Amino acid sequence: MNFNFLSPVSDLILAHNELLSSQALGRRVKIHSAHAGIPDLDDVDIAILGVLENRNDINYIGEEFQLNEIRKSLYSLFPGGWNTNIVDLGDINRGESVEDTYFALKTAISILVKKNIIPIILGGTQDLTYANYRAYDNLIPMVNVVNVDSKFDLGDSTKPIKNNSFVGKVILDEPYNLFNYATIGYQTYFNSQEEIDLMDKLYFESYRLGQVSKDITIVEPVLRDANIVSVDLTSIKGSEVGVNQKYSPNGLDGKEICAISRYAGISNKVTSFGIYEYKPSHDDEMTSMLVAQIIWYFIEGVNYRVSDDDFSDDRNYQKFITLVDSQELVFYKSNKTGRWWIEIPFLSEVNNKLKRHALLPCMHQDYLDACNGKLPDRWYKAFQKNSV
């Protein structure tokens, strides 16, 4: 397995790790070190992968980038009663060009996902999500991306890619593999009306910060349906992070971002998880500890994954049928977990992209709304995309 573009975790962090309790997470993670090399990946479930690339930051002024503080914080936490094997593969150094870094990241993610290992990507800038997405070109036919962000990051796809405008490339660059793009925690005043209208026109999903803060459970179905989850740390409220990291007085709080991370972990479909826009600082334990806790909750979620989406055996689920505007809606509820799905009808006369999306995760509330004559929003958008 050729990972020659990876650099080991620094000796400084390894020395720090040796001083931790033998029960600490850092003592249970297999770590890529200069002395021992890259650990064996057999039986590994989760791989931590740093990417030291921040040149596409619109405010880039040549500053150095490292992830030592995050590793220190993460290694010092205690694991839950987990049975997952975790490896820290070290870092992808910035390449000659940003495209070289993208290529290395795409290659690494593709290798890991093929081996059923979930990469947790710790990044510089969020445009790395584009490389993450491209890693799926030869893995699955259609990809769902969830972006936890205060902005949609659509941008102008004709211009060079930047950390605030990578989604346009995801949508418009061939091969066209994107099925759904959803943003969690967006703040209207950070997004132009054109972008908001475009999200609607493309039948993509967006959850405003206010909606998410009022009821965090509304984002569980969209995360259950995601393949890639990308977290922009600027979506977090300024009071929750260190001075370097502050962006906006409004945003997700620590509990909300950790709940979102746990939902992503529990999802049986999420096969890569990235945290981006970290601004390193030696005296900022607050941000590195929050990032460590976000990672902790994701791993916790992965440990509690339950295979509840096998609908071939009718003992596994209950089926409910209701009528809305002469449209028959079919719901399924798992007997194992109580989670809900809604069926998306195939349109036989169109070239159907949705062969594996026949069942769409939803909430119990969607069923209750349908019983009261209201079409669920997620169903409507998926149906419209399938009709295009």
Rank of each mutant, 00 (worst) to 15 (best):
I86N: 05
I86W: 00
I86D: 04
V87E: 04
V87M: 07
V87W: 03
V87N: 05
D88V: 00
D88Y: 07
D88Q: 07
L89H: 04
L89V: 06
D91P: 06
D91F: 08
I92P: 02
I92Y: 00
I92D: 03
I92W: 01
I92L: 08
N93F: 10
N93H: 08
N93V: 09
R94M: 12
R94D: 12
R94Y: 08
G95F: 03
G95Q: 05
G95P: 02
G95K: 06
G95I: 03
G95H: 09
E96M: 07
S97V: 07
S97Y: 11
S97T: 14
V98K: 03
V98Y: 11
V98F: 08
E99H: 10
E99S: 14
E99C: 06
D100S: 11
T101Q: 09
T101H: 11
T101D: 14
T101A: 05
T101V: 08
Y102D: 09
Y102T: 02
Y102K: 02
F103R: 15
F103M: 14
F103Y: 15
F103Q: 15
A104K: 06
L105S: 00
L105N: 02
K106T: 12
K106M: 15
K106Y: 11
T107R: 15
T107W: 09
T107K: 15
A108R: 04
I109G: 04
I109M: 13
I109Q: 04
I109N: 13
I109Y: 01
I109T: 08
I109W: 01
I109C: 13
S110T: 09
S110C: 10
S110A: 10
I111T: 13
I111G: 03
L112K: 07
L112T: 11
L112S: 12
V113Q: 11
K114I: 05
K114D: 11
K115P: 10
K115F: 07
K115A: 15
N116W: 07
N116R: 13
N116F: 13
I117H: 13
I117V: 12
I118H: 06
I118G: 04
P119A: 13
P119F: 12
P119H: 09
I120V: 13
I120Q: 05
I120G: 01
I121K: 01
I121L: 11
L122Q: 02
L122I: 10
L122P: 00
L122R: 01
L122F: 10
G123S: 13
G123L: 08
G124Y: 00
G124F: 02
G124T: 05
G124P: 00
T125G: 07
Q126A: 09
Q126S: 12
Q126E: 12
Q126Y: 08
Q126H: 14
Q126I: 06
D127W: 03
D127M: 02
D127R: 04
L128E: 04
T129Y: 06
T129G: 14
T129E: 07
T129Q: 03
Y130F: 15
Y130N: 09
Y130Q: 02
A131C: 11
A131K: 01
N132L: 08
N132D: 13
N132M: 14
Y133R: 10
Y133T: 04
Y133P: 04
R134H: 03
R134M: 11
R134T: 13
R134Q: 14
A135E: 00
